[in-house]
Design a protein around this nucleic acid. Structure first.
Length: 587
RNA sequence: GUGCCCGUAGCUCAAUUGGAUAGAGCACCAGCCUUCUAAGCUGGGGGUUACAGGUUCGAUCCCUGUCGGGCACGCCA
């Protein structure tokens, strides 16, 4: 990834940039030849000051000098600054920096002045980045696993926008495959059953959910499916007993197509439209929206799939074997070659996926993000191989993986299967725990870690859910401000000198961390760190709330403390919005 | 069997990407509402970071091996 130049600091991190510059100046005086970037860390403990740098420890080796001696020289060479109160050496050679009260207080006025733009940056420099996520087969309702991808993807997209990328959110619709045919046939069979026109058994590998029957009922009225002669179906059941399940299903699909003729395609289109509309509505209600729903079928219709295979062939990366066309992906880092066109002439899913990625790159995105389920990780090398073979820079493709969600009910792991209709849908989850709790819970873990979703806990309406803790902090602040009933615009100008309480010092320190938390979360595609930050900030606030009075004290102190509260509320609201969680003012 | 990911408090998870004494939430124990919302706060017990080596000023993080878990290895999508 191309990173923004550090020479273009944003106003909000000017303090850290200034301190880094001063340190760099001091280091170059002590060690002119050691071209080493100065690492400035926020101190974890108050006794270590506000910032710390291990630069002396790192320099010691190349200088062949004792770390503490180097630290001493760096400290001596450090220019005076209105931002630096004092500098101390500690431990093996750490340099701890204590900032002045003025530097400390500036964070509050910065936040109040910048409002929702605080924490933004120009890191992305307006680069266009495509984020593809969810992309579930439109063969049934979204389940709780898709929900994680949705919540994660939406939050990542928000973060990328926040740090200055131009983000395009996209859903890849797998509307061209065999699974759609199976759903179509399943719907057809349910319609026949509903109309009492068949006694045949329902195939075990068909889609069994109740939603299929619901679609069948409306399809029955819509397409008059009962007008087709049924004899061939009865014949089919008579001869299909010896087939294995998959062969039987393929035969069933073929039977349906020949029997229904043009009506099959109508039914197929209907089933797809119903599922997509349902999926879209579900996601919209979840606060997840897309700029584009990209159809896989369109890649076949436009000839893009055939074209991309031809391109590979023209480059000499395709060979014939056993009647199939193979892409020599092993020449580009994959562990073995892959079929792109089967011996029956049909292109594989891989072929259309190559065409899709070529399409993405040809649309001119600087960066392409595929948020995939972790079960697809073995698939990544072949996609990269295809891109490289076609002359694209596959470093512009990033594939963050989202691990599975394991559901636990009554302390036992619940199995999920879309086919068998045994799953908890995202809708059920949302209605039981609420959108806010679901969104927050989903991103509370690193995306590449398994998520154990305890349904009993999540559906118990209990207060254990951490999202309430943060929202409550936000609501409490607004209650205080409401009680105060003063002119909030005055808070950004009031004197902050009274803020000397240890809790206040710590809170200002935490507020200052926000931009780098957001920045790092965006770079790492790690919204969970925002969630943890918010929980920690809320905890600090709640403790503060119980420690000092806000309204029943001197007006100057009240104003200063309310300015601090106002800044906290702003960041709580901003952080929650990045995660797609509301920030209510009353609870 | 091969490849990728993972293993941290009783449970679920963090840890500023190699920094100082590894931190939270549940759960457990003891306290705090006549006062700005108790969906809150304060205090307490809890750890050989799976194990064994290695790299260096310094390792939960990097390297090697072992054990254990997950996922993927199709002319499915």
């Amino acid at each position: 990834m191309t990173t923004a130049s550090p020479q273009i600091p944003d106003p909000h991190d000017s303090l850290e940039v200034r301190l880094t510059k001063l340190l760099t100046q001091a280091v170059s005086a002590v060690a002119p030849d050691a071209a080493m970037p100065v690492v400035l860390e926020r101190a974890r403990q108050a006794q270590h000051g506000d910032y710390a740098t291990p630069v002396a420890l790192q320099l010691a080796k190349t200088l062949r000098r004792a770390p503490r001696d180097v630290a001493h020289d760096v400290m001596t060479a450090l220019p005076a600054s209105p931002w630096i109160e004092k500098v101390e050496m500690a431990g093996p050679g750490f340099i701890n920096i204590f900032i002045t009260a003025a530097a400390r207080h500036s964070i509050i006025s910065d936040i109040l002045r910048m409002g929702s733009t605080f924490g933004s940056s120009s890191r992305g420099q307006g680069q266009r980045i495509q984020v593809e996520f969810v992309s579930s087969n439109p063969t049934g309702p979204l389940h709780v696993g898709h929900g994680r991808g949705a919540a994660f993807g939406a939050s990542v997209a928000n973060l990328l926008v926040k740090v200055g990328f131009s983000v395009h959110r996209e859903y890849y619709v797998n509307d061209a495959g065999r699974q759609m045919d199976i759903l179509t046939v399943s719907t057809w069979l349910r319609a026949l059953q509903h109309a009492g026109l068949t006694q045949g058994p329902f195939p075990p590998n068909g889609y069994q959910g109740d939603y299929v029957t619901l679609m069948a009922v409306s399809a029955l009225q819509r397409f008059s499916l009962d007008q087709f002669p049924m004899d061939p179906l009865t014949q089919f059941w008579a001869i299909s007993g010896t087939m294995d399940e998959e062969t039987q299903m393929d035969a069933l699909i073929a039977t349906a197509k020949s029997l229904l003729g043009p009506a099959y395609h109508q039914l197929h289109g209907f089933v797809l439209a119903v599922q997509l509309a349902d999926c879209k509505a579900d996601l919209e209600e979840f606060g997840v929206s897309f700029d584009e729903w990209f159809s896989e079928q369109s890649l076949f219709d436009s000839g893009a799939v055939a074209e991309v295979v031809s391109r590979l062939e023209a480059e000499g990366h395709i060979y014939l074997q056993n009647g199939a066309r193979w892409f020599r992906s092993s020449a580009f880092g994959d562990e073995k070659d892959r079929v792109v066109q089967r011996d029956n002439g049909l292109f594989t899913y891989f072929a259309s996926d190559i065409a899709y990625h070529v399409n993405k790159f040809d649309r001119g995105f600087d960066l392409v993000l595929d948020l995939w389920g972790a079960d697809h990780h073995g698939y990544i090398p072949r996609v990269r191989a295809a891109l490289r073979a076609l002359g694209y820079d596959d470093q512009r493709l990033k594939v963050p993986l989202v691990q599975f969600v394991s559901l636990f009910r009554h302390g036992e792991k619940a199995q999920m299967s879309t086919r068998k209709g045994q799953f908890v849908t995202l809708r059920e989850l949302r209605s039981e725990v609420g959108n806010d709790a679901a969104r927050f819970f989903y991103v509370l873990r690193k995306s590449d870690q398994h998520l154990d979703f305890d349904l009993d806990l999540a559906t118990s309406q209990s207060q254990d859910n951490p999202v309430y803790y943060i929202q409550y902090a936000h609501a409490r602040i607004h209650r205080v401000l409401q009680r105060w009933n003063g002119d909030q615009s005055l808070l950004s100008h009031c004197t902050l000198e009274p803020l000397t309480h240890p809790a206040e010092i710590a809170l200002m320190q935490s507020l200052r961390a926000y931009p780098s938390v957001v920045d790092q979360a965006a770079v790492d595609y790690a919204p969970h760190s925002v969630a943890f930050y918010l929980r920690d900030l809320a905890a600090e606030f709640h403790a503060y709330y119980n420690a000092v009075p806000f309204l029943d004290t001197e007006p100057v102190i009240t104003a200063a403390r309310l300015a601090l509260l106002s800044a906290i509320a702003q960041l709580l609201k901003d952080g929650l919005s990045l995660l797609g969680v509301s920030a209510p003012e009353t609870m």
